[in-house]
């Protein structure tokens, strides 16, 4: 059980140092796809983990850690850092892959995911892993926590931003809507709600489990400054455009809905609830991996 050496890995330091926006965009797209391969391998090796939701958040996490977030790898608890709350904590494997690439710990440690005594718990644990800003796992907590962090920034006159990634499951929980109401009341600055809106849940399509549409309209009706359009959460260029919009918003919290696909990157797992958290069989693993590697190789040509 170790990271496969058959893929060409990008040097993360080069992404951080890149000054040409087009190149950087392409590099982040490549990194997201590269992490999909590592996550697919890790979950296959271990025979446990959540491929669907992890894959869904790959590009969002890549752009957050390589473009948006102001963090210090040598001082993960630096008080001035931007915060990220991964409310959909089951995307943990992708989160760990991105944290490792960002330099918080060696990528080789991904092999310890979900094993006894590992820092890489099944769902993120801030006590074991200092670069995690909040332990998550049970859905629906993240936006309240992020709101508290943003309100603390206001009270302490700090300048950090707080980002919260929620999924469909989080939006099912009443608590998320309590937090949405409270966000509209207290209106802390520099709070960003990012919806990884893949519309598939554990048991089936959200439409059958708990329909959330029209989501952006709901957020607006609840008093949130909501992005004027939906963004493609699998295209780094689109996520960068949403970031441009976010940065021009001055007061109060903002919400952005990203259209994503659960299990993105592999044709037979995309949009399929069966791939929320099931173990990966040998045949699917081989077929899926071939698709992920093809996508990785296509990155340059596409961009």
């Amino acid at each position: 059980m170790a990271l496969r050496q058959d893929i060409e890995r990008i040097d993360p330091a080069a992404i951080l140092a890149e000054t040409d926006p087009d190149k950087k965009r392409q590099q982040m797209q490549y990194l997201a796809r590269q992490c999909r391969v590592d996550v697919w391998d890790t979950i296959y090796d271990l025979q446990t983990g959540h491929w669907g939701g992890a894959s869904s958040a790959a590009e969002l996490l890549a752009v957050l850690y390589f473009h948006m977030l102001n963090v210090r790898t040598e001082e993960p608890r630096w008080p001035g850092r931007d915060r990220l709350v991964l409310s959909k904590g089951h995307a943990s494997c992708m989160y760990y892959a991105m944290l490792a690439n960002r330099g918080f710990f060696p990528l080789s440690r991904l092999c310890t995911f979900r094993r006894l005594h590992s820092d890489l718990q099944g769902h993120p644990c801030m006590v074991k892993l200092p670069c995690v800003d909040m332990s998550t796992g049970s859905l629906g907590h993240g936006l309240s926590v992020g709101l508290g962090m943003a309100m603390a920034a206001q009270a302490l006159k700090a300048r950090y931003r707080t980002f919260v990634i929620v999924g469909d499951g989080c939006l099912n929980e009443g608590q998320t809507w309590e937090a949405i109401m409270a966000g509209a009341k207290f209106r802390p600055h520099r709070l960003v709600l990012m919806v990884d809106y893949n519309k598939v849940q554990l048991d089936g399509p959200s439409e059958a489990i708990m329909p959330m549409d029209p989501l952006a309209e709901k957020l607006k009706a609840f008093g949130w400054n909501t992005a004027p359009r939906l963004y493609d959460g699998h295209r780094v260029g689109e996520i960068l455009q949403s970031w441009e919009w976010i940065q021009t918003q001055e007061a109060g919290p903002v919400a952005v809905v990203y259209q994503t696909h659960k299990g993105h990157g592999i044709s037979f797992t995309s949009d399929q609830s069966r791939w929320h958290g099931c173990p990966i069989d040998r045949e699917s693993y081989v077929r899926g991996r071939a698709e992920l590697i093809q996508a990785l190789k296509n990155t340059e040509a596409e961009s």
């Binding site: 309240s144 508290g148 309590e178 937090a179």
Partner: peptide, 24 residues
């Protein structure tokens, strides 16, 4: 320094957690 969250205890508890994690 006083925040009335309305009748929403779960939200209140997690907001406090976020605040505590940031030094309040």
């Amino acid at each position: 320094r006083f925040f009335n969250l309305g009748v929403a205890e779960a939200n209140m508890a997690d907001i406090a957690a976020g605040m505590a994690a940031c030094g309040l």
